[in-house]
Design a protein around this nucleic acid. Structure first.
Length: 449
DNA sequence: TTAGGGTTAG
């Protein structure tokens, strides 16, 4: 009972401890406590403990049910462990449990959100497999695929599914469907189409929500139409929609990127006048710090940091990343490493972004050996080198004229199954080919050059 | 089980 009580009170680590103790004292633990605990751990993105609790459940012969498997598969997908998630589908069958529409939706979403080429092909294959097993796709299935195609910059495929959904007798598009497709259109710069879909929502009795407005505001901002973005923002009140801190962050960030720090600060100040909007979220401060750093205004940035301290708002991973990035770009990698150590001291786990910026910082200063040491440190910290890491290192080697070393890194990256992106090709073209060096790597790379 | 903002390489 203790496990469930702690889980319900969001005391997840205490719940895990109670779960462990329950094993030793042989207290009865039922699936009714285990499933919520697994679900809470997944929500906390604590995949390590999620997997441990699951293994322990099996060891203690607590029989998993459909919800257990769906929760586990969701957790593994969110952690990017798609293969393990697939294995669990086989496990559940062995337990005599058939995958449900939720199982398939979860897996399809996992593939949709994976950053790999051809992921939508895999997602579509899963959809076909699901249909072949007479499991009927629901509105969520459509939403997941529509969003996946939009993020894959294939709005045509997304629109096709959207039309299919509208033609179905048993299903209707929801606000989430519309938001996904409006977001996709915004990213393609098709603001007119996005706005007409917003009108279509009203005609179909689907009420736009704050996300709809956030997406439109961001769309206008990212297409350099700040005035129009502000107009959408101003129109919210008339529709009875209250902006959230995300709405403000979107606009504040756009003004920061436009170099209009005055307007950004003004917006931040005005947040405190709106009911239910917290002006002291760390993410809003991050927008402002990033804005000041971008224009090289150190005083501005430290004023914001001081204000955060005054108000008791703690810097997070992204705050540190912004500051580390700024120092690295200014050739102050040593100071940046001090911040890296500081974040470790206060218990913040540096991300790929943190390490990649530091590696890039050293490369910019021509300190290639130190850059490679930083990669070692990164991997010791459990962050595997990714495409950005290799791009940065390859460029660093090229700029020092070390073409064989650059080529070696390129091969290494391909051997690890990392997929080169547009920037990799730009580096090869601009740095390698330009210097008359022909990359001595296997054929599949040339397709994109 | 699904949608929105803030940090990296050009």
């Amino acid at each position: 009972m203790l496990v469930l009580a702690y889980t319900k009170n969001s005391k997840v680590s205490l719940a895990v401890e109670a779960f462990d103790r329950a094993g030793n004292y042989r207290f009865g633990l039922s699936i009714l406590s285990c499933n919520p605990l697994l679900s809470a751990l997944v929500k906390k993105k604590d995949i390590g403990n999620t997997e441990n609790v699951y293994k322990e459940m099996i060891r203690r012969r607590i029989e998993p049910n459909l919800i257990t498997f769906n929760t586990m598969i969701n957790g593994l997908c969110k952690a990017g462990k798609l293969n393990k998630a697939g294995d669990l589908v086989e496990d559940m069958k062995a337990w005599g449990i058939s995958p449900s529409v939720i199982t398939y939706n979860t897996l399809i979403d996992g593939y949709c959100k994976m950053g790999k080429a051809g992921k939508m092909y895999k997602a579509d294959a899963l959809l076909k497999e699901m249909i072949s097993k007479n499991i009927v796709a629901n509105e969520v299935t459509f939403n997941i695929l529509i969003d996946g195609y939009c993020k894959d910059e294939n709005v045509v495929a997304a629109t096709k599914l959207f039309e299919e959904l509208k033609n179905r007798q048993d299903l209707v598009p929801s606000v989430i469907t519309y938001n996904s497709i409006i977001n996709g259109l915004c990213h393609q710069g098709e603001l007119d189409k996005a706005l007409s879909l917003q009108k279509e929502m009203l005609a179909s009795n689907v009420k736009p929500n704050v996300v709809t407005y956030n997406v439109l505001i961001d769309g206008f901002c990212k297409n350099g139409m700040l005035k129009e973005a502000h107009e959408v923002f101003d129109s919210m009140a008339g529709q009875g929609i209250t902006p959230t801190y995300i709405t403000y962050n979107t606009l504040i960030n756009a003004y920061c990127k436009d170099g209009e720090m005055q307007e950004a600060i003004h917006l931040h100040d005005s947040m405190s006048l709106v009911r239910d909007v917290r002006p002291d979220d760390v993410s809003t401060y991050n927008c402002l710090i990033s804005g000041f750093c971008r224009e090289g205004n150190k005083e501005g940035a430290s004023e914001i940091l001081d204000e955060m301290k005054e108000k008791g708002v703690r810097a997070d991973l992204i705050t540190y990343n912004i500051l580390i990035g700024a120092l690295c770009r200014e050739g102050e990698s040593r100071k940046a490493v001090k911040l890296l150590n500081e974040m470790l001291e206060i218990g913040l786990h540096p991300s790929h972004v943190t390490y990649n910026m530091l590696i890039d910082g050293y490369c910019r200063e021509g300190k290639l050996a130190t850059a490679l040491n930083m990669r070692t440190r990164m991997e010791k910290d459990g962050r595997k080198a990714n495409v950005v890491t290799y791009n940065v290192l390859i460029k660093g080697q090229c700029q020092k004229g070390k073409m064989q070393e650059a080529n070696g890194l390129l091969n290494e990256m391909l051997e690890k199954g990392l997929v080169p992106n547009r920037i990799t090709y730009d580096i090869i073209r601009d740095e390698m080919m330009e210097k008359g060096f022909v990359p001595d790597i296997d054929g599949h790379l040339y397709g994109g050059v």
